[in-house]
Amino acid sequence: MTDFVSLLTTRHAYVLFVLLSTIGLYMLIANENLVKKIIGVNMFQTGIFLFFVSSAYRVGGSAPIVEDGGGPYVSPLPQVIVLTAIVVGISLTAVGLALSIRLYSEYGTLRADALREVIGDE
């Protein structure tokens, strides 16, 4: 029991990472609308970004803008990889949305279950 309390009070950001990723995964599986599926992928990603950024955090540390006699600083490396991942994520979203628009113009629906039916009939 104390394990769970300390999990919630000291590893809170990691708990939020698990919850956000889970909600993103749920959207990806349960929502039939393709746009909402893509929002789910984005939410899954942001959960992982939160994990990286919070693992770089240091209590009492300052942002990694280095000055003489400053510090301690939080770790800059996870922040760099998250910056890269955000940009790659928006590229992924853009291609996914473009494919959704194309699917809609071909089949007239954005619902995954309706698409499965239409494509299965052909």
Binding site: A13, F49, L50, V53, S54, A56, Y57, R58, G61, S62, A63, P64, V74, Q79, V82, L83, I86
Partner: peptide
């Protein structure tokens, strides 16, 4: 992110 001292992110 800003709270976790990652202003760029």
């Amino acid at each position: 992110y800003t709270f976790y001292r990652a202003p760029d992110v």
